[in-house]
Amino acid sequence: MTTGIQYFKPAEIADLAGADVIRMPENGGKASALMAGLEHARSLGVMAAVMMDADGQHDPAEIPAVAAPVLAGEADLVIGSRFLDKKAKVPAYRRLGQEVLTLATTVGSACPTTDSQSGFRALSRKALANLDFASEGYAIESDMIAHFASRGLRIKEVPISVRYDVPNQHKMNPLSHGFGVLATIVGLIGYKRPLLSFGIPGFLLAGVGVSAGIYTFSSFYETSQFHYIIFTLGFSALFLGLLLMTTGLILNSLVQIMRSTGARREVGA
């Protein structure tokens, strides 16, 4: 017995609604799909392109508010922040995870935000013309901020609401998802700011090593007892710290050379 009910796939529903549907030949992940959609928007010459997550957490009625700064010429990237408005009810564990990722993104991009992982955004024509960066999976939000900030694009946040009682929630476990994005951001920090990612830990380790050495020899002078374990650990920390600082200096020099080479190419072009 048939019920006569016909089921449609999301792409078919979008087609029936009159949307331009981009079909990917294979599943390349979130970043690949978003880039394809934004590139299509750029080819259409739109004044603003809005992106939002498809799990129903965002309210489409807030699209005008998110796009407004772009249309007014005040920003090139507008991020809908769940943390600017206290009315947005975000579970404590999600808030903690988001704050960790936002802090890491701020360190890596030198661009402070309150909600770096928000998928509700609006991009200007200038932003659409500067999508020449590589990104994979769910780290595209952080990669976008870092890339646009390095290009001097204007980034702004506006408050949005959010809901988590949706039927089609995120397929990935929040913990594994968060660690995956964090790992990518840490890699970004190492690439963009090697002195920060290698130099500071190296300096701290070297300080621990020097302190351990001072303690060891001071104790030997006072008690005639030599703490071999503390000395060995301190020497190891000093050696590793100096190695990290040297690595940071070398990588920073390479980054500066790459930046100056890229700048000369842009001037030549």
Rank of each mutant, 00 (worst) to 15 (best):
A149N: 09
A48N: 09
N173H: 11
S109Q: 07
T184R: 04
L243W: 10
S109K: 01
K126D: 13
F239C: 12
M258I: 01
M172A: 15
S135C: 02
I63F: 05
R193S: 09
Y138E: 14
R151T: 07
Y7F: 08
S118P: 09
I13C: 05
F198H: 06
K30F: 10
Q98P: 00
K171L: 09
K171D: 15
G207E: 00
R121V: 15
P64C: 12
L16C: 04
F198A: 06
K192R: 15
A75R: 06
G152S: 01
A33L: 06
L101V: 02
S211C: 12
D15H: 09
S260Q: 15
L233G: 13
A48M: 14
E136V: 11
A104K: 08
E157V: 08
S135L: 00
A263W: 06
S211T: 09
R82K: 11
E136S: 13
S224N: 15
A65E: 15
T102Q: 09
Y138D: 14
Y164M: 03
M35K: 11
F120Q: 10
A134G: 12
L77G: 02
T232E: 09
A61I: 00
F198G: 00
T184G: 00
V78E: 00
G29A: 14
G152V: 07
K30T: 07
M245F: 05
G45A: 07
I185T: 01
G202H: 04
Q169R: 14
G199K: 01
G207C: 05
L84C: 13
A183C: 04
P167S: 06
R94P: 05
K192L: 15
P60L: 02
A104V: 01
Q57D: 10
I155C: 12
P64V: 05
V158N: 08
T106N: 07
V208C: 07
S236E: 03
E141Y: 10
V90E: 03
D20F: 01
F217R: 05
E62F: 00
R163Q: 13
F148C: 07
L196K: 00
L71G: 02
D53C: 08
D55Y: 02
L188M: 15
E136G: 05
A48W: 09
C111M: 15
L249W: 02
E62N: 03
G137K: 11
D20M: 04
H177M: 10
G202W: 12
F239G: 03
V162S: 08
P69A: 15
G213H: 06
A183R: 12
E26V: 11
T106Y: 02
Q6A: 11
I13W: 03
A31I: 02
L205H: 10
L77I: 00
L242P: 06
F217Q: 12
L240Q: 03
L123V: 08
Y228P: 03
A110W: 06
Q98W: 01
S197C: 04
A36V: 00
T246N: 10
N168I: 08
F220T: 07
R193T: 03
D53T: 08
L204M: 14
L84D: 13
E74G: 05
S219E: 13
H40N: 10
K30H: 11
A68T: 04
F231K: 02
L240T: 12
V255E: 13
A122E: 01
T113R: 07
I13Q: 05
Y7H: 11
A33K: 04
